Amino acid sequence: QVATSTVRILGMTCQSCVKSIEDRISNLKGIISMKVSLEQGSATVKYVPSVVCLQQVCHQIGDMGFEASIAE
């Protein structure tokens, strides 16, 4: 089973930030795809909930120095 959710990301300033986040999160087990939008300050994450949760994704992004939260 696959889920798609949006994560809000604060602190991104350039495409390099976007690429860094996409590269790191895409390597997590259970992540199918991730598309980060600098303009919208968010990311669309396609993932397998039984393998990885959005809290883990937000935590990983937080470790990179950005502020991440699950969009309502």
Rank of each mutant, 00 (worst) to 15 (best):
Q1V: 11
V2G: 05
V2C: 14
V2M: 09
V2Y: 14
A3N: 09
A3I: 12
A3C: 15
A3H: 12
S5F: 06
S5K: 08
T6F: 13
V7P: 00
V7K: 00
R8W: 14
R8C: 13
R8V: 10
R8I: 14
I9R: 00
I9Y: 02
I9N: 00
L10N: 10
L10Y: 13
L10D: 09
L10R: 15
G11S: 04
G11P: 01
G11Y: 06
M12Q: 02
M12D: 00
T13E: 08
T13Y: 15
C14Y: 02
Q15E: 12
Q15S: 11
S16F: 07
S16D: 14
S16W: 05
S16K: 14
S16M: 13
S16N: 12
C17R: 02
C17L: 05
V18W: 05
V18K: 08
V18D: 01
V18R: 05
K19N: 11
S20Y: 06
S20F: 06
S20A: 09
S20I: 10
I21L: 05
I21F: 03
I21R: 02
I21G: 02
I21K: 02
E22T: 08
D23V: 09
D23N: 13
D23K: 10
D23G: 10
R24H: 11
R24S: 10
R24F: 06
S26M: 13
N27D: 11
N27P: 10
L28T: 06
L28K: 02
K29M: 11
K29G: 08
G30I: 07
G30W: 06
G30A: 02
G30F: 06
G30K: 03
I31M: 03
I32P: 00
I32F: 05
I32V: 12
I32W: 05
I32N: 01
S33L: 08
S33H: 08
S33A: 07
M34Q: 00
K35Q: 10
K35E: 08
K35C: 07
V36Y: 01
S37R: 08
L38P: 01
L38N: 00
E39I: 11
Q40K: 14
G41R: 14
G41Y: 07
G41V: 04
S42E: 12
T44E: 11
T44K: 11
T44Q: 09
T44N: 08
V45Q: 02
V45E: 02
V45H: 04
K46Q: 13
K46E: 11
K46M: 12
K46R: 08
K46W: 09
Y47C: 04
Y47V: 02
V48S: 12
V48K: 10
V48A: 08
P49M: 06
P49Q: 07
P49K: 07
S50N: 08
S50R: 07
V51S: 05
V51E: 12
V52C: 03
V52E: 01
C53E: 11
C53D: 13
L54M: 09
Q56F: 14
Q56V: 10
V57N: 01
V57S: 01
C58K: 12
C58S: 09
C58F: 13
C58P: 05
H59N: 14
H59V: 14
H59K: 15
H59T: 15
H59R: 15
Q60F: 15
Q60W: 12
Q60H: 09
G62N: 15
G62R: 15
G62A: 15
G62Y: 12
G62P: 02
D63H: 13
D63R: 15
D63T: 14
D63V: 14
M64R: 01
G65W: 04
G65A: 02
F66P: 02
F66V: 02
E67C: 06
S69D: 06
S69N: 07
I70M: 09
I70C: 14
I70Y: 12
I70L: 10
A71L: 15
A71Y: 13
E72I: 12
E72A: 11
E72V: 11
